[in-house]
Structure formats: C-alpha cells, structure tokens
C-alpha cells in the first residue's frame, strides 16, 4: 500500500518496519527481502512453513543477528536492532536454574541497574498480581511448566519493553495451561498497551490472539500474504468461538498449503 508522498508526515510512523530484510546462512538464502510493518499497540502473528526463518527474523529484530541487507525502522528511524528494548520469550522458558523465581524476575531490572531493593519490591508486586506469591524463593526446577512460563512472562513484562517478541512461547504446554497463559498475556498486553510480535506454527493461536497475521513463504522467505483479523472478542476462548474464526482459520491453512478438507476421489 503506497501512501501519497505528502501524507506520511501527518501519520505517526509505524512502531517497527522491516524494509527489504535479507539474510543468508552460508550458501543458503533464508530471508529474501522481507517487508512488513507493525503499528503501535498492534498484535501481529507471523506464521509460515517450518524452516522458513521465523526465529531468524526475531533475532534480527532483537539485535542478536545482523541482516545482510535491508533496514529496520523503529518509530521511523533506522536502528541496528532493539537490544534492551524488546521482551523476548521463547518456547524454552529460559529461566536461570541457579536463581530463585524472584532472582529470575529481577534479572532484567538488575541488568538495567535498578537498586536491588526497588527491583525486589517491584518483582514481589508482579508475582502477587500473577498469582505466584509464595513461590518467590522456589527454584525453577520445582515448578510446573505452566508456572515456569508464567515466571518467564513476568520477567518479560516487568522491564516494560517497547515490543514483545514471542517465539512460540506456549507451544510446549498442554492445551489447558496454554489457554490460561494466552489469557494472561492478552490481559497484560491490553493493560500495558504493548506491541506484540508472535511467531507461531499454530494457526489457531495466531487467529485467536492477533489483529494481523503475516504469512511467510517457503525459503528463501518472503511475505506471502497479510491478513487483518477482525474478531471483536479478544479472550482466547471467546475468539475461538467467534463466527468468523473458522473462516480465517481455513483461509490461513490454505495459504500455508495445508489441506483442511478431505480430498475427493
């Protein structure tokens, strides 16, 4: 969508824009010029066939990898990556096993140089809000998978990052825990007005949570399609029961070349 040249000054620039981002590993081209934008307060899901370089995109946005070509624009200004400004969550909870729950939650505050006492108080508030009061002195290995991922979510939220980068954060959890944590996430995103980028292989999750879905092609990866999801109900269960849900679900499945209907003989 090309805007007239005079208009962009009137509109706020997108929170984050990828322009022609390309990356190859050795002789293998992974990303072949990616373009998409994420508006302030948006919830964008990235879906694509496995091995299409979703995690690579994340690592570039997070500033862990440098793209071979293309630019990353943050609020209109080119940046190298968003080190220290993103909240990164992966399928692995990445809790430091030698730190207690409290120690893990304050990690980001500690890195930013917050006074230990202040960090501790803030962490205790967050732990209470997310139902983990009383677990502050437990080590991660004593917690269930769902609780560990909840601690990881608190650790991510507490540093108040500009953008949340979520790389299949709930895919290792059972369905019940996952619905619950999706709800916690949605509630937090709404309360703190966060901008979220979610990578998932789960079309169901993408439709239920996001306002916009970016569909990627096979490697070398380009943006294959963009879908706006218009589902009024924002809760994970409510969204899944919305009449429009299944329409989006099937549209995205066919974008990914997944057969959702029985092939006629």
């Amino acid at each position: 969508m090309a805007l007239p040249a005079a208009l962009p000054t009137l509109l706020p620039p997108p929170k984050l824009a990828l322009r022609g981002i390309a990356k190859r590993f050795g002789a293998t081209p992974v990303l072949d010029g990616l373009d998409f934008e994420i508006a302030e307060g948006d919830f964008v899901s990235i879906i694509g066939p496995s091995g299409c370089g979703k995690t690579t995109i994340f690592n570039i946005i997070a500033g862990l990898l440098e793209p071979d070509a293309g630019t990353l624009l943050y609020e209109g200004a080119p940046v190298d990556g968003l080190r220290g400004r993103v909240g990164y969550m992966m399928q692995k909870d990445l809790l430091l096993p030698w730190r207690t729950v409290l120690g893990n939650v304050v990690l980001g505050l500690e890195v930013r140089g917050m006074a230990p006492r202040e960090a501790r108080d803030k962490a205790m508030d967050y732990l209470a809000t997310y139902g983990l009061a009383g677990f502050e002195n437990s080590y991660p290995r004593a917690l269930s998978g769902g609780m560990r991922q909840r601690v990881a979510l608190i650790r991510t939220l507490i540093v108040d990052p500009d953008i949340l980068l979520l790389d299949e954060p709930f895919s290792a959890l059972d369905y019940q825990t996952r619905l619950y944590l999706e709800g916690v996430l949605m509630e937090a995103v709404e309360r703190f007005h966060k901008t979220v980028v979610l990578v998932t292989h789960d079309i169901d999750e993408a439709v239920a949570l996001s306002r916009k879905v970016v569909v990627l092609s096979h490697r070398p990866t380009r943006v294959k399609a963009l879908h706006d999801i218009e589902i009024a109900e924002r809760s994970p269960i409510g969204a899944r029961s919305d009449p429009h849900f299944s329409g989006y679900f099937h549209a995205l499945c066919s974008e990914l070349d997944i057969q959702t209907k029985r092939v006629q003989p």
């Binding site: 862990l64 080190r83 909240g87 990164y88 990445l94 990690l107 980001g108 890195v111 930013r112």
Partner: peptide
Amino acid sequence: DLQSLLVTLGADKDQVFRKVIVPSAL
C-alpha cells in the same frame, strides 16, 4: 539461548559473563 536472553535485556559482555557464564560453569 540464556546468553541471548541477557543480550535482549540489554546486558553487556561483562554482565553475560557474571550472570550466565560463571554460574552455569560452576
């Protein structure tokens, strides 16, 4: 991945060393 996490939180090399490398090597 733990080192990456620290980097995304804005940690420098010394912080990665003190907060991840040393305790995980212990």
